[in-house]
């Protein structure tokens, strides 16, 4: 078959850039898993909550952008804290399955609340990203996708730096690697748990705002979370690097499947990648292999 390289390049470029958003949302997921070992199935719904908060501040209350975005992110942080305190903390010490199922319930509650407050209608966020078309050689790149990817990488870098150098970040990493030892050296582990949920919710809000400004918001945008789930599993649940690499990879696979096979193959392709990775490397590309003892 005659290969159109220009097309391949253009599609790949867009998809990898789009994958940046998966990476950011994946990071939000990994944050919680690393610290608390909770698989958060409601990650897509938390994204949605963030974007609706932004919608409220920016479109309904008409706040300026520089105020609306931080306000939405902070409000999401509070939401994260509330979730941790009321639903996750009581399950400390229960089998991980319980917390997993709680997050399923959480997803349903969040969708219901959004529909109650904002109705199930599709809405559009105010445009705040530059609209100047971007070209790389002959290839077009949608400005929203480009700027979305830029914002995502800025946040990812910031998070990585914070976790390298800030005390709270160090405490989180310490808790992740050994909870008991972290307690022993005087780290307030429950607070680290709260912290991880707050940060995760805030990151989710940021990606929600970007995703929403690209594709509009609706109460069913939690579907995005399914792909994020694939991303973190492919990358390895507890690996930050894994989330980043897998985010781009899954974005690319999805884009190529959509371009060469058709839209109906997008989700199928990502899930096939997931099953394949699980069979070959059960703990993901960069995940830590757990050793079980009695």
């Amino acid at each position: 078959m005659d290969m159109d390289w220009g097309y391949l390049f253009e599609v790949s470029l867009t998809s990898v850039m789009g994958g940046g958003l998966y990476a950011l949302a994946g990071l939000a997921f990994v944050m919680v898993y690393k610290a608390t070992r909770v698989v958060n199935l409601a990650i897509g719904e938390m994204l949605m909550a963030g974007s609706y908060l932004f919608f409220t501040f920016a479109a309904m209350w008409a706040l300026p952008l520089w105020l609306a975005i931080p306000a939405a992110v902070l409000a999401s942080g509070v939401l994260g804290a509330v979730i941790e305190r009321t639903m996750i903390r009581p399950l400390l010490g229960e089998p991980p399955i319980s917390a997993f199922m709680v997050t399923i319930g959480l997803g349903s509650v969040l969708v219901g609340l959004v529909e109650m407050i904002w109705s199930a209608d599709q809405r559009r966020l105010p445009d705040f990203l530059p609209t100047q078309a971007i070209t790389v050689g002959d290839a077009f790149l949608a400005p929203k996708i480009f700027w979305g990817a830029v914002i995502a990488s800025v946040f990812i870098t910031a998070v990585l730096l914070v976790f390298r150098y800030w005390r709270g970040g160090v405490a989180l990493r310490a808790t992740a690697s050994d909870q008991a030892a972290a307690y022993a050296v005087g780290i307030n582990v429950p607070r680290v748990f709260s912290l991880s949920w707050v940060v995760s919710a805030m990151l989710a809000a940021v990606s929600g705002i970007i995703v929403g400004s690209i594709g509009g918001i609706s109460s069913s945008m939690g579907v995005f979370g399914l792909t994020v789930l694939v991303v973190v599993i492919v990358g390895g649940l507890d690996s930050v690097l894994g989330a980043l690499v897998a985010g781009l990879l899954v974005g690319l696979v999805e884009g190529l499947a959509g371009a060469y096979l058709g839209g109906e193959y997008k989700l199928l392709a990502t899930f096939i990648v997931l099953v394949f990775i699980l069979m070959v490397r059960p703990y993901g590309l960069f995940g830590t292999r757990e050793i079980e003892r009695l």
């Binding site: 097309y7 253009e10 599609v11 867009t14 998809s15 789009g18 958003l21 077009f140 790149l141 949608a142 996708i145 995703v211 690209i214 594709g215 509009g216 069913s220 945008m221 579907v223 995005f224 884009g255 959509g258 371009a259 058709g262 839209g263 109906e264 997008k266 989700l267």
Partner: peptide, 19 residues
């Protein structure tokens, strides 16, 4: 062009359409 249900990012499809 058939788009996936609930997909948010359609930039790949737009490229297809433009071509």
């Amino acid at each position: 062009i058939m788009t996936a249900a609930g997909s948010v990012d359609v930039s790949g499809e737009v490229i297809k359409l433009r071509r």
